[in-house]
């Protein structure tokens, strides 16, 4: 019996890899949905968005890269869909160079029109880039949304936006034109002119910096979508009211999808996630039983006190 546990203790980690792979893959094929209750921090963010008047301008800062796409992209898509459907205008920027591209991809993916382009007053407008159709609502680049690209300088960028938005993001991404040529930028001089900031962040610079600068210095309400790793860091700010809501990881994304009525990838992935959790917990339990049965005989070495 002891032998069995000892063997288990020194098991090749690749065995664990296989188990995890299966635990995550199988539910993808089964496609079972799980009930998702909405937590307080997600509700706060949603309520804040609900309270915004029509035509309110929202700054969306995409501070993530493809690595965190599975967690944050569903949030971006759900949020953009909600903005278009509720007549809210949004301005995409990024403190990470990959962020604005991720924003573009989200816009491309939420577009529901099957057409590729239309010609209007001699201008060719592409769906998914110039025009976005969500249900019966349409949003247009430069009027209802815009992408101003990336700026380097981490938190210093936020600091600069606080005093002059135009100096910080001089031009748009799609046409490379000065931003003030676009009607959506009318009335936006500083960070404080935005009605809300939605920060989707996977690390530094991210939510912490947005709280420190945008909220603490310039008093703009900031709501955050975080990877699950970043979320615990953001919790203390929720408690102090510095953050207006947190979407934590895929679960937060799924809850948000539920609130805005857009069941998509985050919701579908919750089953895989739950399975994986159960297995990780099993690993911890089995590992500890083995440890106690063998009293840690085959531990490699223990330098810790």
């Amino acid at each position: 019996m002891n032998k069995f546990w000892e063997r288990l203790l020194t098991i090749d980690r690749r065995a664990i890899f296989v188990v995890i792979f299966l635990a995550l893959s199988v539910p993808i094929f089964l496609q079972i949905g799980l009930p998702i209750p909405v937590t307080r921090e997600v509700q706060i963010l949603y309520d804040a968005l609900e309270d915004l008047p029509r035509g309110a301008k929202i700054l969306v800062s995409c501070d993530y890269d493809p690595g965190s796409e599975p967690e944050l992209q569903p949030m971006a898509e759900a949020a953009f869909k909600y903005f278009v459907a509720n007549d809210l205008r949004f301005i995409i920027i990024g403190l990470w160079p990959q962020g604005p591209i991720q924003g573009n991809r989200a816009i491309e993916d939420i577009n529901e029109s099957d057409d590729e382009l239309i010609v209007e007053n001699g201008d060719t407008l592409y769906f998914g880039a110039d025009l976005v159709v969500v249900g019966e609502d349409t949003a247009r680049y430069g009027i209802d949304f815009i992408n101003l690209g990336f700026q380097v300088g981490q938190e210093l960028v936020i600091q600069r936006m606080g005093t002059s938005f135009e100096a910080t993001f001089p031009s748009d991404r799609r046409f490379g034109r000065p931003q003030k040529e676009f009607p959506i930028m009318e009335g936006i001089y500083r960070l404080a002119d935005f009605d809300f900031v939605l920060n989707l962040s996977a690390g530094y610079p991210g939510t912490v910096e947005w709280v420190q600068f945008a909220v603490d210095r310039f008093h703009v309400p900031v709501g955050a979508g975080n990877t699950a790793v970043q979320a615990p860091l953001a919790y203390p700010y929720l408690d102090t009211g510095q953050l207006t809501g947190i979407l934590g990881g895929m679960k937060g994304g799924a809850e948000f999808e539920r609130l805005v009525g857009h069941r998509a990838r985050a919701t579908m992935s919750m089953t895989s996630q739950t399975m994986a959790h159960i297995f990780v917990m099993l690993f911890i339990v089995v590992g500890n039983i083995a440890f106690f049965v063998t009293r840690g005989k085959s531990e490699r070495r223990d330098l810790r006190k």
């Binding site: 309270d51 008047p53 301008k57 009335g187």
Partner: peptide
């Protein structure tokens, strides 16, 4: 010199507060 949305900035006093920096 500027425009702003409807709604209040300070709900207790029912006022809108906005800075003109143009």
């Amino acid at each position: 010199v500027g425009e702003t949305t409807s709604g209040v900035s300070d709900s207790e006093r029912q006022v809108k507060i906005i800075a003109d920096g143009r």
